[in-house]
Design a protein around this nucleic acid. Structure first.
Lengths: 165, 165
DNA sequence: TCAGCCTGCTTGCAATTGCAAACAGTTGAG
DNA sequence: CTCAACTGTTTGCAATTGCAAGCAGGCTGA
């Protein structure tokens, strides 16, 4: 997403956000309204929070502002500002051979794996700092066994779901 | 629309898509409406293309279906389904954040999903070839009423065709 | 000074959205 | 057979959305 490095205001103030962007672009409300193809009174109302525009109007406004519609959707709370950190996420979402439910199952499992790995990485970091003396063998043996216990149960759950799909 | 050469389902048939997802999940319209927190008549109208739901309603429906809201937004044409073309298998294998075991788990699940989908596609193809005559779907959905001949006339009279906007 | 143009806002209204109440058809148990 | 419980649809209506016409104030150049 293009808003990645940007400091986001509180979601919900889509009107303020639009006004900010417009003022940054140094165009009048009427100019934006014309460029966006919406009525200027309506745009005024939107900026002041009196009306709540549909996604399509947001899309038009985004075009007028020359920013991504997704940035406005995020501000309006229609989508989460979540982007794929990895190719796996992107690939799963893009795979046309999966149904939506299957896709979601895979995503959930993948995320839980990553959380698990991050927890382990944190635990390992702490253990490493505690064990200032050289002795990698104890930490190595502790890392392997807990993982085996966790993963099989995930398998079992993952495979019972797809039967519905 | 920038589809990057990707073969997308026809955008705009959000109602069909929702009905498909609902039927895949094997829940009734009323059950989904309850789970989604929308009225069942409205959901019925949405599925039949009589109404055009807002993004918020789509979000609610997605929750009821347990799929991502983004999938519905894509179908409704609110966002572009712009994802990389990378392969799921390759991505999983290349992901350094996964342990070997986790990697294998995901691969196994992914493969079983694909097998399942292929089996379904084959079964559907066979079923389609057996039912050469047009008529109510014999796919086990006995709940589909045969009074479709009545409803379309109502549509024509009640309101003009919803504009694509 | 003042007309013309700009700015953003007010107001009334048609169309649309989403709902509740009711309707109509189907199914399975008694 | 009846009937309760389920299914999806019809209908009328309140609230909301988006617009067009107009208002009010500010600025500029003749």
């Amino acid at each position: 997403m293009q808003t990645r490095g940007m400091e986001l205001p509180k979601v919900g103030s889509i009107g303020e956000y639009i006004r900010d962007q417009r003022q940054q672009a140094k165009i009048s409300l009427r100019q934006l309204a014309t460029q966006a193809g919406v009525s200027n009174p309506y745009l005024s109302q939107i900026e002041r929070g009196l009306r709540k525009p549909s996604a399509e109007i947001l899309n038009q406004i985004a075009k007028g502002l020359r920013i991504s519609s997704q940035a406005l959707y995020v501000q309006a709370g229609l989508i989460d500002d979540r982007e794929p950190d990895s190719d796996v996420l992107a690939a799963i979402r893009a795979d046309q051979e999966l149904s939506e439910r299957q896709r979601q199952v895979l995503l959930d499992i993948y995320e839980s794996f990553r959380k698990e790995n991050q927890a382990e990485a944190a635990a390992e970091a702490e253990r490493t700092s505690q064990n200032a003396q050289p002795g990698p063998e104890p930490s190595g043996t502790d890392t392997v066994p807990p993982e085996e216990g966790v993963a099989p149960s995930r398998i079992g759950r993952g495979q019972s779901e797809p039967k519905e799909g």
